[in-house]
Design a protein around this nucleic acid. Structure first.
Lengths: 248, 248
DNA sequence: CGCTCACTTGAACCTGATCAAATAAGGTGG
DNA sequence: CCACCTTATTTGATCAGGTTCAAGTGAGCG
């Protein structure tokens, strides 16, 4: 069985949500069932195992998913079996703001780690949105951020070198994790984070091959910029790493 | 003087709007002053010359622009003076749906041809949006299309060859122009359209160099796929061209 | 122990970039 | 209308960043 389903009230298997409770983005927080929020919507919590699919392209879905725990990716499959990752989804992320308005997902959403997510009925969520102006603002906020990240990725893929793309990906993830209180900063200002991505994920996200990703990461390691071990990544030299990332 | 400003009623210098009156996308049409629409919002019409800027990055704008005539581009400038075009804007396009919710444009909008556009006050537009559910649907439609095109571009830049990128760009433009009744189909099923783009625009949009764009276009021409002359492009062999565009 | 999956490393290759020079196409002032 | 200047486009030669191919190493797991 790849998914478990349970209706409210949310039970302990959703502990991951609590863990990141405070770190969820506005929308997710407003909808969290255990918050003091005055907004109440029917919702369902699910768990999927790593590598399993959360929603398929062209699926017609009545449900709008929000990630509560774990990492996922939105990916587009090409006819030659190559893949492009459009975005990584972290706890608190709405899978796609477009799903609020149209039932058809146009890309695959795949769990990278085990993932806990909640789903809402589109109709209810929309209704709530129109009734609560503050929710509407959160939505437009999420929308703007989603588009900004897509535009940023376009620039990266169109105009930056492999080194830059990879460094920027890592820094962007660090930034987003930091907003969720999911990084540690050590006394020598190194930044450490959980990093469940395989090199092929990085390759699929940056438009490179896994082989080249390996070479670039080795280079970064040799340069003392980062350290990777045991599904955890440390940026040893944030300033230097940012320098690599930013400009030609 | 780069822009002319005139308050309603719209005069003949906005003839371009009439030309494409029927072709505007839902939102723009609903807002067109000469339509039988029951929705009335204060608006201003402006004209800018080719190559001039419609709105600058980080500009704080009270105004939301919709293109009425001509072609424009959203572009991101990099520190090394290279550029990435995020999207081409055609008549009927909202410059960016994000501008409805936040006053700060995060990219430059540049006229490619002479451009006629109208601007609306954000506050009024937002208010109208919430009052008219059918406008809200048009907006979410525009939003979804905008995001779809961005995602499509990500895939193109991440995973496709130069030939594919260029062919797809041209086909996408043909498709969008066709929705606006701005293409001609000749008896031998060739597709002809106005094509004001310079090769450097194509390069900036596809993440390639102008030199390489020139080579690829020459190759297409030599293969009898397209013809370009006098700011007009003809797809001579649509089937063959689509084959080049679609898959590896 | 033997698999499989992830990563690493090196060699050869190729797509697209860079450099350079020539040609064409506009636009302007006289 | 022409001479001149600037901006596009074309074409060829060379270069380089990443890919592809291939083989080997290592870690986790049944």
């Amino acid at each position: 069985m790849t998914t478990t389903e349970l209706s409210r009230p949310i039970d302990v298997s959703c502990a991951a949500c609590e863990t990141h409770g405070l770190s969820l983005c506005g929308l997710a927080r407003a909808l969290a069932p255990d918050q003091s929020s005055h907004i109440q919507i029917q919702q369902t919590s699910r768990t999927v195992l790593a590598r399993r699919i959360i929603c398929r392209e062209h699926d017609l879905q009545d449900a709008v998913p929000i990630i509560c725990g774990g990492w996922a990716a939105s990916v587009v499959l090409l006819s030659d079996a190559s893949r492009q990752i459009l975005s990584f989804l972290l706890p608190g992320d709405l899978v796609s703001t477009a799903l609020l308005f149209e039932p058809r997902s146009h890309c695959l959403v795949e769990a990278i780690t085990d993932v806990v997510y909640r789903t809402f009925k589109r109709s209810e969520l929309k209704a709530t949105l129109l009734k609560h102006p503050e929710m509407f603002d959160m939505l437009s906020q999420a929308w703007i951020e989603e588009k900004d990240r897509a535009d940023q990725l376009i620039v990266d893929l169109g105009r930056r070198t492999a080194d830059e793309r990879i460094a920027r990906l890592i820094l962007n993830l660090a930034e987003r994790l930091s907003q969720r209180d999911m990084i540690r900063t050590t006394e020598n200002s190194a930044i450490e984070m959980e990093f469940p991505l395989r090199q092929h994920h990085i390759a699929d996200a940056t438009g490179l091959t896994p082989v080249h990703v390996s070479k670039v990461l080795s280079e970064f390691r040799r340069g003392g910029l980062i350290k990777i071990s045991d599904r955890s990544l440390t940026i040893l030299d944030p300033a230097g790493f940012r320098r690599v990332a930013n400009m030609r």
